[in-house]
Design a protein around this nucleic acid. Structure first.
Lengths: 113, 113
DNA sequence: ATAGTTAATCGTTAATCGACGATTAGCTAT
DNA sequence: ATAGCTAATCGTCGATTAACGATTAACTAT
């Protein structure tokens, strides 16, 4: 166990613009993930994605929340690009966007490695 | 591209208590990460961790935030167990807790795989 | 053209968050 | 015992979030 608790060289604390930008993005993504209902939605979309389909706001009955509330959660997830919406009027088909999951994982891993 | 947008079998949507618990935890962790200043703190702590030491609220000068504000961010990160506090009176030595980073990664990966 | 369906948007309310200055607590060293 | 640090806590304020019901928009099918 190291007992030192001082920064010897402040050079270590240099931050690039790129890093700050990444942190901003990562924070925004984490924020989108920071709600149990939204994780529940993602989990459901992952499950139905495997079975080939996707699903609209049957999420409402599945989550037991008001339609407008679910719609708002979907908006947030869509804005963070964790999900993709496809119109099938008058329905909406939501799918997960695995690419963004991978991006998040990558950015997070960069943070502490 | 699959045009189906319906769940055939609601069995797929069965959720275990364990999964719900994991989602609660993951959401709480994500919430702790969902702020640029806190990610900045973690990044700094990772950097100084490598060089053997750790650092107290020199974070204040590094972040340009009030002492009480930084203290609050540290409290949140500590509560989420992303960092560990060690008293060196009257100073406080903060370190990152890599274990928790790994746990978060794992829980997140489970979500979408 | 109208009726029906689905989801987005609006407006409201209560709760939570983020930031700050000021104060307090805890510990050391004199 | 007191003086001097550092960091936690308190109290406040404005901004943001989460939830809901009600309304609107967009599109189909009759």
């Amino acid at each position: 166990m190291n007992t030192k608790c001082m920064v010897i060289d402040k050079q270590f604390l240099q931050v690039s613009e790129q890093q700050l930008t990444n942190e901003q993005l990562l924070a925004a993504q984490a924020k989108a993930l920071a709600h149990p209902a939204r994780l529940r939605i993602l989990s459901i979309l992952v499950a139905v994605d495997k079975s080939g389909g996707c699903l609209n706001s049957d999420l409402v009955s599945e989550l037991g929340l008001a339609q407008s509330t679910v719609s708002e959660h979907l908006r947030i997830l869509k804005q963070a690009e964790f999900i993709i919406a496809e119109a099938m009027p008058p329905k909406m088909c939501y799918r997960i966007n695995k690419k963004q999951f991978e991006l998040f994982s990558t950015l997070f891993a960069e943070l502490y490695s």
